[in-house]
């Protein structure tokens, strides 16, 4: 565990991305620690000398395990129209920067994401991109996602909704 290779980290993030792309949401939920904090704050355009672009006091996602489970359960209903018929999304995860695993089994990893989404017959492609800062924890058996902060690069989202997970 402590000798996690870079390849192992890549495999971990790609495995998670594949679960989302394949819509295996229950398996994805199993990857999440029960005390996960999953959030996506807003970004604004501003002079960097006057303060940070990220506004932590407003978010697109402000989730815990229970609220993420509710979102997953919603996708299983017969009337979640944003995903019915299902969209096709592809999570491209790259620029993975992993810190060495700490003695208590904590992996801190940053990655870039690009999600492309196709809706129904539309030839137009929706996209969203940015950076994720993760903390994963070893629970004795497997790695589970403990913290995720998603930083969008856009201030005005060009996707009509965030019916996907990032």
């Amino acid at each position: 565990m402590s000798r996690l290779t870079y390849g192992d980290v890549v495999q971990l993030l790609f495995h998670e991305a594949a679960l989302l792309d394949r819509r295996e949401y229950d398996a994805w939920l199993d990857l999440l620690d029960d005390s996960i904090v999953y959030r996506m704050p807003l970004r604004i355009t501003r002079d960097p000398r006057s303060g940070p672009e990220i506004r932590d006091d407003m978010a697109f996602f402000e989730e815990n395990k229970a609220s993420l489970r509710t979102r997953v359960e919603r996708l299983k209903t017969t009337s979640a129209w944003a995903e019915l018929p299902p969209t096709r999304a592809r999570h491209f995860i790259s620029n993975i920067l992993a810190e060495p695993v700490t003695d208590d089994g904590t992996l801190t990893v940053a990655s870039s994401f690009l999600v492309l989404r196709s809706r129904r017959e539309n030839a137009d492609v929706e996209q969203i991109f940015g950076e994720r800062r993760d903390v994963w924890r070893w629970n004795g058996e497997r790695w589970r996602l403990f913290r995720r902060t998603i930083y969008p690069d856009q201030t005005t989202l060009s996707v009509m909704n965030l019916s996907m997970f990032l």
């Binding site: 979640a80 009509m160 965030l162």
Partner: peptide, 13 residues
Amino acid sequence: GPAGTLEQDDCEI
């Protein structure tokens, strides 16, 4: 908001 479970479906329709 764009991730809201109610808003998502409104936007789509």
